[in-house]
Computed example of a mutant assay.
Amino acid sequence: MIKLTLPDGSAREIEAAQSAAEVIKGIGMGLYKAACCVKINGEVCDLRTVIDSDCQFEVCTFDSLDGKKTFWHTASHILAQAVKRLYPAAKLAIGPAIENGFYYDFDLEKPFTPEELEKIEAEMKKIVKEGIELEKFELSPADAIAKLKEMDEPYKVELCEEHADKGEPISFYKQGEF
């Protein structure tokens, strides 16, 4: 048995390792639908994280800062995917969550018009409705840089090079063709 200690001090036991999403579904579908991420022993993790040992377990919804940051991070990926679908020549820069939302820098020949922003928003809604599975994977800094060069994303290469000296793996999230 694996013991999960919840924020209120109560415990929940699971018989075998399972994803945070499956644990949350076992607690309740309402909570599962509202969940943005979890904290395992105080560390923010995505819902695909497998729980295989006793831990402190907390579900974060959009009502929490960690939930908001996770939601906005995913929304920035959806925005980037929508832009790349509509404007394949666009180069991606950064798209971090900030205090009250997120932003994304794109390199294009000209700025987006209000009409183009409406098309991008419509494409984002379409992507969400597609229910695309998110897949996380990690690459070594050298492999990440090579992959991003192959994808012709010079700003992402630059970001990876800044982190490469730490030697830590670089996280990627794949959603459909993006």
Rank of each mutant, 00 (worst) to 15 (best):
K147P: 00
S19F: 02
V59H: 12
K39L: 13
S140F: 01
E43F: 00
A164C: 04
P7K: 12
E135F: 02
C55F: 08
K147Q: 14
E58T: 15
E153P: 00
I98W: 09
K126R: 15
T49E: 15
C37D: 00
I27E: 08
S19R: 02
F102K: 11
Q56L: 14
V128E: 14
T113G: 03
I2A: 07
L139E: 01
D143G: 01
G101F: 03
S53V: 12
K3I: 13
P88D: 05
N41Q: 05
L117V: 11
E99L: 10
S19K: 00
G26C: 06
L134F: 10
K39A: 14
C160W: 01
L31T: 12
S53N: 13
E121T: 04
F57W: 10
H73K: 03
E130F: 06
S76A: 15
A144Q: 02
E115L: 11
E168T: 12
F172N: 11
G9K: 11
K69W: 08
C37R: 02
I98T: 13
A34M: 15
A89L: 01
S76Y: 08
E158H: 12
K91F: 05
K166D: 13
T5H: 11
L79S: 01
F137N: 02
E115W: 03
T49I: 02
G28W: 06
L92E: 11
F137V: 05
L139G: 00
I145N: 04
E123Y: 03
